[in-house]
Design a protein around this nucleic acid. Structure first.
Length: 843
DNA sequence: CTCCTGGAACAAATG
DNA sequence: ATCATTTGTTCCAGG
């Protein structure tokens, strides 16, 4: 294993490894990945108390029988608890930095699912963190899994072992964090007290558990129990972690990161694992999966393992047997990248595409309600996801989880969970798996179906804000945080032992009943860019437009303050609920020499605004750049309907992170196309493979520089997620993490930036952008890709980049200047990228 | 009879 | 501190 690790390291490092963990690279890869995780380190902060809680959880699991998810969580927790216990060293938490590589590594391996293992790990833990164990973890297979567990555990364990290690994370992080955040900040008490929820039947289960479990220091005790807390906690940690990580990073770059995350994750996973077992239902999916084995195994394995080790044994086993998945591969999962890692949508020949996007609105259901059905597509059908470039005969497993849709990096959404839909109307088999508080739906991707899956089995469950916010470590707030994205992942094992992980995120989905009914939504705009003179009519298509809807164009500075704002003239007579015609207002400066990115939004009233939409003013003389179709549109005239739906789509791609933008290009063809794009991502590291997430700073930096050239792309297109003009809501206090978390992202971010037409030295901006300072405001800048600062706000990637580390790297990007002239257009950068890509592929 | 939904009542959180 | 909004969650009822 080591060999592999070592050998591969360099190469793979950047890329895939994660997957690869199994493979080998662990170290490198791990390190890279870990970074992000390292965020966890944040754990450091929180660390202190954590363990305690864990213990509690363990109890819960059994009790609760709630349905899948909750139970799972509990179960896991139980496991976790075990784990936690192990970790006695609180110290470690804090030191995350100390951890350095070793710890980090271990953690990662664990990350994913490892958690479950953790419990078992103790022993492992003992082993000196890093070394052997870790590596083992990395290693893909089998035993490794256990090992990995250890890792996960290791991290946790490590703490024990070595204080330095820190404590990694693991244990600490989870508990600690939560405790701190929640209890301290919000005052869990408050939350608890507030609601009656506790009473609710649903909550019962949870509560019962949680309370007990939650031993958390805090008094939460309260009924609420935020059930999930525990579970969540772990997960939360992740988020938090990111922030923390960021902080940590600042302190130290070491592998530390991993630690934190890894542990939490593990715990979570465990929980998940349990659930899975519970879910046995798997049924069809299972069958299919079974065949696939590989992928499934990954997840399953872990589960299995966990189960076995833990109490599961009995229950779980059954299911397992049923399905092939259960198999022995357990370990795989551990190696998989954490859910908050940013992954590219295409790598080498592979390209994971969302062929049919989900509708922009889907009312999520509460636990107190019945299911509200599966997420549907605009067409009335269901979302469709396809993997291009995969020629093997082995089925793969497509993973789906609910991710965030804010301006920060993509990560599992704390307030929503994917909900498995079954029934006669459902044609797609699926199977639930829990990974660190996040429910994942696993769907078979079969060669016979051309590696295409119709997602008609995925609903969305809303968790009570009060429950989630109480989780330890959870820093996000649920209020107004009702937009999500479907996040799809595929892990492809390659001959060389590495695993390529791809990720694609859907366009944002508004899950709030009220928001969906009241907030205007712009799905398409007929014009993306136009000369500063304005005057052209632009057709907007979307939802909830009212006779008195207004369209406001705004330009924000990096720091978030408004540079320019004007209300455009709306053709009141032509307004329909789904369409609106507006005249593009002249830009404040008619002499711009390079494209200027601004934003606009539709406003139905004070707090009823659409997300920011991107728009680019072009220098009067300059012909429109190819970049966008806009030209066409222009010519057509607003009346023409040709709209761009860029925003969303681009976004979706974005999600994948940087890659995303690239992905666009890649899209169809898959193979060839991708490579180029990779460039963007890959750019980061020679190593390349986008797939891999290069976490390491270095890579980034590298990438960035190169990126400039690449930059072009769709950057603009990227259209970061739409942001709501006025709502900072998303911005959460805690957020800092986002940034940090991103470490990985950076690459992405950079690309975007690059892409952005942004004329001139935005760099600075970026740097600023990070601006975590004004979390809230940031969002606003959606459009900004190009120029400005906005970009940052928008795309998560940006954020990431900006924020942390990225910073380091990003700067370079900025400097790139590549952006230069607005035009930038996406030229192909292929060469470089390709190389990288190939390399990756080749390897 | 259960599952979906669409609508809304209620009530906590904000402004 | 109070009142008006908003927004989150729970209920209902019809298909």
């Amino acid at each position: 294993q080591y060999h592999t690790l070592q050998s591969s390291p360099i190469i793979s490092v950047s890329s895939c490894h994660q997957m690869g963990y199994n493979l080998q690279n662990d170290n490198h890869a791990a390190s890279g990945y870990y970074f992000p995780h390292s965020l966890r380190p944040n754990g450091a902060p929180a660390l202190e108390s954590p363990r305690i809680e864990i213990t509690a959880y363990s109890q819960c699991p059994e009790n609760e029988v709630e349905e899948s998810s909750t139970e799972d969580h509990f179960i896991k927790r139980g496991v976790n608890s075990i784990v936690t216990l192990t970790l006695p060293n609180a110290d470690g938490y804090r030191d995350p930095s100390c951890l350095s590589p070793a710890s980090s590594i271990s953690s990662r391996s664990c990350n994913s699912e490892a958690s479950s293992y953790e419990s078992g790990f103790y022993n492992y833990d003992n082993s000196p963190q890093n070394s052997p164990w870790q590596s083992p973890c990395v290693s893909p297979k089998g035993s490794s899994s256990l090992l990995s567990c250890p890792h996960s555990g290791g991290p946790a364990g490590s703490p024990y072992h070595s204080p330095s290690t820190s404590p990694q994370i693991g244990a600490m992080a989870e508990e600690g964090w939560p405790a701190q955040h929640r209890s301290g900040g919000t005052g869990g008490g408050g939350g608890m007290g507030k609601r009656k929820y506790s009473f609710n039947g649903t909550s019962y289960n949870q509560t019962s558990c949680s309370p007990n479990q939650s031993p958390t220091p805090s008094p939460h005790g309260s009924p609420r129990v935020s059930i999930t807390d525990e579970n969540w906690l772990a997960s939360t940690n992740q988020y938090t972690n990111s922030a923390i990580v960021a902080a940590i990073n600042a302190l130290t770059t070491d592998g530390v990161v991993d630690m934190g995350e890894g542990i939490p994750i593990k715990t979570r996973k465990t929980m998940l694992d349990h659930s899975p077992s519970m879910s046995l239902k798997v049924e069809p999916g299972g069958d299919e999966l079974g065949p696939d084995g590989e992928i499934c195994h990954e997840d399953y394995p872990s589960r299995l393992a966990l189960k076995k080790e833990n109490y599961c044994a009995g229950f779980l086993d059954v299911p397992q047997h049923l399905y092939s998945w259960s198999k022995p591969k357990p370990y795989l999962s551990p190696s998989l990248p954490a859910l908050d890692w940013q992954l590219p949508s295409c790598s080498g020949p592979y390209n994971l595409q969302i062929e049919v996007q989900p509708k922009s609105h889907h009312r999520a259901h509460y636990e107190t309600e019945g299911s509200r059905g599966a997420v549907k597509a605009l067409s009335g059908g269901h979302p469709v996801v396809q993997l291009y470039g995969y020629m093997e005969s082995e089925p793969l497993t497509l993973q789906l989880f609910i991710g965030t849709a804010d301006d920060r990096l993509l990560r599992p959404h704390a307030f929503y969970q994917v909900h498995r839909i079954t029934g006669k109307t459902v044609s797609t088999a699926s199977h639930e798996v829990m990974q660190s508080n996040t429910k994942i739906l696993e769907i078979p991707l079969l060669p016979e179906n051309n590696m295409r899956a119709i997602i008609d089995c995925a609903g969305i469950l809303k968790l009570r804000n009060s429950d989630i916010e109480l989780r330890k470590g959870e820093t996000d707030i649920g209020r107004k945080n009702t937009r999500v994205r479907l996040v799809f992942r595929v892990h492809i094992n390659q001959p060389n032992g590495r695993t390529v992980s791809l990720q694609a995120a859907s366009n944002p989905i508004e899950c709030s009943q009220r928001s969906a009914q009241e907030l205007p939504l712009v799905e398409k705009q007929s014009v993306d860019s136009y000369p500063a003179t304005g005057g052209k009519m632009m057709l907007l298509s979307g939802l909830n437009f009212l006779p008195d809807s207004k369209v406001v164009f705004v330009e924000k500075a990096q720091d978030g303050h408004h540079l320019w704002e004007t209300e455009a003239k709306v053709d009141k007579d032509s307004i329909k609920s789904s369409t609106l015609v507006v005249e593009i207002p002249p830009y404040r400066n008619q002499r711009i020499s390079s494209p200027v990115n601004v934003n606009f939004y539709v406003c139905n009233g004070k707090r009823k605004r659409s997300q920011y939409q991107r728009f680019t003013y072009l220098p009067p003389n300059v012909p429109m750049i190819k970049t966008e179709p806009s030209d066409e549109y222009d010519s057509r005239g607003t009346a023409g309907l040709p709209m761009h739906s860029k925003p969303y789509y681009s976004q979706s791609r974005l999600t994948p992170i940087m890659p995303v933008s690239d992905s666009d290009a890649c899209l169809v063809g898959g193979y060839s196309p991708c490579p180029p794009r990779h460039a963007a991502m890959p750019t980061s590291s020679p190593s390349s493979s986008p797939t891999l997430h290069d976490l390491s700073p270095v890579a980034y930096s590298k990438c960035l520089p190169s990126s400039p050239s690449h930059a072009v792309l769709p950057g603009p297109m990227v259209a970061p997620i739409q942001e709501t003009p006025g709502h900072p809501s998303l911005a959460h206090p805690a957020s800092p993490d986002h940034n940090t978390s991103l470490g990985m992202l950076p690459s992405q971010g950079s690309p975007n930036h690059l892409n952005s037409p942004g004329p001139h030295g935005y760099h600075p901006v970026y740097a600023k952008s990070s601006p975590s300072s004004s979390p809230v405001s940031h969002p606003s800048t959606p459009g900004g890709t190009a120029e400005s600062p906005f970009m940052q706000a928008y795309s998560p990637s940006h954020a990431a980049a900006n924020s942390s580390h990225a910073g380091g790297s990003s700067p370079s990007l900025l400097s790139e200047d590549a952006s230069p002239p607005s035009m930038a257009i996406t030229v192909k950068q292929e060469p470089q990228e390709l190389d990288q890509m190939y390399l990756d592929d080749g390897e």
